[in-house]
Amino acid sequence: MAFTLTNEFKAKADKLRAGYPRPDAALIPLLQELQKDRGFMAEEAMDALAAYLGLPYARVKAVVTFYTMFNRAPVGKYHLQVCRNISCHMAGAPGLLARLREKLAIEEGETTKDGLFTLSSVECLGACGAAPVMQVNEDYFEKLDEKKLDDLLEDMRHGRLRGMAR
């Protein structure tokens, strides 16, 4: 099935492009916008965007593969991104990751069968004073310990986390 950009997206795109003297500068914001729809970047979506912007497909693909926030496969409803860098490491990030692996029965990069959780380890999230830190979708959860992590998982399982943007 061919991927088509919605008129709503095109309207947003035109607005975003107007913010730059060269419209292709809006590529990254546009990709972010596009990812909101499906949660990941399909080749067809990149192709459609490339055609819409009049850019070579290879450039769009190169940008998508360069930046870590573009998901190249579907992710769960909650994308758990545990910081593994130095301050979080010292504050127990490896333990948190191990606990998540065990409780969710998945490895990093995998999604639970019910489609609820994807587990990733990520590099420094820039909140080292509140280590260890985990980003879930776009929200930060700081100063985590095992209890807080367990409660958070329960809240997510029961849909009690409100207003979380994807």
């Binding site: 990254i28 940008v63 930046y67 573009f70």
Partner: peptide
Amino acid sequence: SVHRGAGAYICGEETALLESLEGFKG
């Protein structure tokens, strides 16, 4: 205006940042 990056430490280097801001790899 505000321009969000997309996950690349290197974009903290100022010319990589400019590349990224122009819609390229950083």
